[in-house]
């Protein structure tokens, strides 16, 4: 592999995401920038400028036309992906962290951090078909949990919402009533990332307690556990093989006192079922903050604390290894 290094961010990366077809890649980071890249050759297709604070997460519509971003400048914004113009702005009194379009993109959920007197909340909005008709009216506010909500997922055909938070909990919310239906302490420390499998039956969590867990969506039963020697910031599942990709590394605060070799900054591949690490890809020199597989499983991308994004296209021999590992 000869990965592409995308140096479009000057500060740590927060999230890297592919669109539905896998031809576009969106990255966002602490430098308040959102970049759009062509996923085949890593050329920058555009940047969404306007946020005044760290951009935590982004989400795209299925047709790759509208981008939703949640940022630390207490706003969540809708962008046109074709020309980079801002379509709408949701304003809050608290920093926004996680955001997700519902299946069908009629709704969107945005989580806000606890700040001053307010507790953490998940806010639901209607998304208008035409951005001109978009309203900022909140249709539901889910409050209660302590700690910031790091990731959100719509499940059960938009009837329920999954949230992962910094207290190590994963919760299921009823979208109609706003009640918390189930919760489970999956991790001892904060859950940094939660990614859904393509069929939605299970998801993978990544936590700073140095474990990553494969969890059943319906029962919250822990199916598999992947252990690392350093905090895990992100975990992704291959859509074509039983492979799990984990990114993390020595805590950013301790990096200056650690040798790059001891930092566990590699992107690490585990077998999903046997829980064994079978491969590594080096390249970053600081903790990996976000990893993603392309929807066709032929490439993966990692974004790290140093501000670099590395876009890897697998060599042919990876597909020959495939399930034989």
């Amino acid at each position: 592999m000869r990965p592409y290094v995308l140096q479009g961010h000057t500060r740590p990366l927060n999230q890297v995401v592919f669109n539905a077809e896998g031809d576009l890649l969106v990255t966002c980071g602490k430098d308040s920038k959102i970049n759009l890249w062509w996923a085949d050759n890593g050329v920058r297709a555009g940047s969404f400028d306007g946020h005044n604070g760290v951009v935590w997460t982004v989400d795209m519509t299925y047709d790759s036309k509208v981008l939703l971003s949640a940022a630390g400048d207490s706003s969540a914004r809708l962008w046109s992906m074709e020309d980079g113009s801002e379509l709408f702005r949701f304003r809050f009194n608290e920093p926004a962290r996680a955001c997700r379009f519902s299946v069908g993109e009629k709704l969107a959920a945005v989580s806000t951090d606890p700040f001053m007197n307010s507790v953490s909340a998940i806010r639901l909005f209607n998304i208008a078909a035409d951005p001109a008709d978009q309203s900022a009216e909140e249709i539901l506010n889910l409050t209660g949990p302590r700690g910031r909500i790091t990731r959100l997922h719509w499940t059960d055909q938009n009837r329920t919402l999954l949230s992962s938070s910094e207290d190590g909990m994963v919760r299921r919310w009823d979208v109609e009533t706003g009640k918390c239906l189930a919760e489970k302490q999956l991790h001892e420390k904060q859950v940094m990332d939660m990614q859904m499998s393509t069929d939605g039956t299970h998801f993978i969590t990544a936590s700073t307690d140095r474990t990553s867990k494969l969890v059943d969506t319906q029962t919250f039963e822990v199916l598999k556990e992947y252990k690392s020697a350093a905090p895990i910031n992100s975990a992704a599942m291959s859509p074509i093989f039983d492979h799990v990709l984990i990114g993390g590394g020595q805590d950013a605060a301790a990096v200056t006192t650690t040798a790059a070799k001891a930092g566990y900054f590699e992107a690490r591949f585990f077998h999903k079922v046997f829980q064994e690490e079978f491969a590594q890809a080096r390249g970053h020199f600081s903790p990996i903050n976000s990893v993603a597989f392309s929807p066709d499983g032929t490439s993966f991308v990692t974004g790290a604390e140093e501000g670099n994004v590395r876009l890897h296209h697998f060599d042919a021999d990876y597909f020959q290894i495939g399930d034989r590992i």
């Binding site: 990965p3 592409y4 050759n41 050329v43 591949f269 491969a279 590594q280 890809a281």
Partner: peptide, 14 residues
């Protein structure tokens, strides 16, 4: 801002 790494990065089998 995009560059391809000059050297080959291997998926190191462990």
């Amino acid at each position: 801002v995009t560059s391809q790494t000059p050297d080959e990065v291997q998926l190191e089998r462990i």
